[in-house]
Design a binder for these strands. Structure first.
Lengths: 252, 252
DNA sequence: AGTTGTGTGTACGATAGCGCACAGACTGTA
DNA sequence: TACAGTCTGTGCGCTATCGTACACACAACT
């Protein structure tokens, strides 16, 4: 079944950059699925059954400590792929992947993915390229956690999130953001209050609207633009070798 | 030139696990070098000219912020490889690699490394396996920075460092440790003072001796044993496919 | 319209870590 | 032996963030 008009923008950049002839081989293995808010793709320590390519969904990679405290180590949107540790030869993974913004994506069985990764040149090249960007993001998160204030980090997080959305509103409670950033909910309330007073955002129970992107950028730490630049570079590298083709799905 | 007796333990686990016949091809490209304390293998944003395989040296990967503040995002010893972003297809890297414990290692030109990575099956498999472990380490660093005290982190850091050494003494100023962990020097002075009072370590100007490993483990956060387990698993995976062979070097 | 659950605002003291300043101690060199 | 440079110890007030507690506000369901 071919894509419909509504799915034209509903695609994954990495998949889209796979060479057309090689994509044909990948196609039958791809399964288009819903990724509802809050669903967990994999748990820490679990054996990966699939890899995922988000289209409209955004997934948060979190590390969960023994006492339950959590920290986001990276976010994955339609620029990337989930379950990379599969490709690296380790079946288990130390993080949890949880859907942070509900949406859709493609899923592929672990076995098929590995097989295609090993024989499909462009898929392998693109995946490694993405992993490099992922590593950059994780490095920054580590440094940012150490050196920057909650407000700065909130700005960074909001910007990175809306960059992956088509709208400027996100469905998200302060509680949830707090658990992503690994801080208290009250800390987010305070920081968000400041941003609201400054006129940069607005919000109501579980909804946040970004009113002034550039305002957020001025308050954000440098980390935002570094990650942004890395991803922009990634996407342009994707597209320099991109070959237009349809993305299709199997019924679940 | 073959290895001498003193170099038998002076090897890199990853290199040692490369299949014997494939290693023969790699051999002529390897250059045995000194890696003195404080030397910088590559700077943030620079183009990589080499990859490195430490033997006795330990290298710290740091992210440097615009204001000069630094954070260690991972450490690399003889279990790993430096300059992985080369393999991922991105020539530049967002971190700085600085030698944290002086020693030796092998170096290989970027071009040769890439070529061998692409045609040497076991080198590729081992590198990806290592990168997975590196990612784990970076995730933990991010989470640890967020949630754990300086004292806990110092214990983790000391343990991970002496695990890679043959002795229990490290040559290291408090200032240097502070810059690794991304905290104030005074913070390290205080934490180290506590550990000394507890009888777990001893130190004098630029030298730290670990007296009681298990004591440090009890004070350390969980992060130490998670990283340790990951690296132990990595080494055993290396050796299950290990083929004994000499590691040789070219004169510089 | 009332009830219940969940999300948000606010306040308070406690504490870890920071920035700064300076004193003392060690070590290598003159 | 003296000196200079570096490393370590300590004290101070300051700030961000935490932990806890509780009040209020909104939305959905009965």
């Amino acid at each position: 079944m071919s894509i419909t008009a509504s799915q034209v923008t509903n695609h994954n950049h990495l998949l889209a950059a796979v060479q057309a002839d090689e994509f044909e081989r990948l196609k039958p293995h791809l399964e288009f699925i819903q990724m509802p808010l809050g669903s967990v793709l994999y748990e820490s320590g679990s054996r990966l059954q699939h890899s995922w390519f988000p289209t409209t969904a955004i997934v948060s990679l979190q590390y969960i400590m023994e006492d339950g405290a959590s920290t986001e180590i990276a976010g994955v949107g339609n620029e990337g792929i989930l379950g990379v540790s599969l490709l690296m030869g380790g079946a288990a993974t130390p993080s949890r992947a949880i859907v942070q913004t509900g949406g859709c994506g493609y899923r592929i069985k672990a076995g098929s993915m590995l097989q295609e990764f090993n024989r499909t040149e462009s898929l392998q090249r693109l995946s490694l390229l993405y992993i490099q960007a992922l590593i950059t993001q994780m490095s920054l998160t580590a440094a940012c956690n150490r050196h920057h204030s909650i407000e700065q980090q909130l700005c960074r997080w909001l910007l990175l999130t809306i960059d992956r959305l088509t709208s400027n509103e996100l469905i998200m409670t302060q509680e949830l953001i707090a658990s992503m950033l690994g801080v208290r909910r009250e800390g987010i309330t305070e920081a968000a209050g400041n941003l609201k007073n400054a006129g940069f955002i607005n919000y109501r129970r579980g909804h946040i609207t970004v009113l002034d992107r550039s305002g957020l950028e001025t308050l954000s730490c440098e980390c935002y633009k570094v990650v942004k630049k890395e991803f922009d570079g990634l996407l342009s590298t994707y597209t320099t070798t991109q070959h237009s083709h349809s993305q299709t799905y199997r019924k679940k």
